[in-house]
Amino acid sequence: MNENQNAINKRHGDIERLNRINFRPILQAISRPGSLHSIEFHDNSGILATAMLLLYPSIYFYSNIDISWDLIAAVTGASQGGSNTADYLFCREPCLKEIEVAKTGDTENPEKASTLLIEVNNFSSGVDVQLSGPGIKNMKQCTLPISKELITARAEKNKSFPMGIDLFFLSSKKEIMGLPRTTKVEIL
């Protein structure tokens, strides 16, 4: 019994450690749009690692990624919801429909908007853009690893600040990039 309890405690301790290691790069990613930050994976997955960090009992999540979410739901206590009701959407492209229906909050409660975490292959291919806005010193040029349609759909969602959606991109190289609703994206 004691051994089992110790094993459970160790497992919880490992997850809590992973969460605090991953929170800082995620916070830096949303604070400094367009910059890359390293995260640690959970079970070889950045999506699962961020799900462990972000989900808790009062949160709804949605995913179009073909992995088992039962264990994540059981461990975090979060519930699965639709793409139009979820607080966090874990996606892989194509996810145009998800962006179009994601929550944007309202003017009184803009924090009730959805955050999308999009799994991408790498940050070397995609659309060359110029970013500006809070968190960026003057301007920043980078490559967004998504389609032009997705960039246009995001701009449409974010046209009425403070309402809007926040995005994160996660690569297989354990890198994360943030794109908050305040960031202006110009396609080069």
């Binding site: 916070l27 949303i30 955050t115 926040d166 609703r181 305040t182």
Partner: peptide, 8 residues
């Protein structure tokens, strides 16, 4: 905190 940073 993530929301607060996203909505300065």
């Amino acid at each position: 905190l993530l929301k607060a940073v996203a909505i300065p």
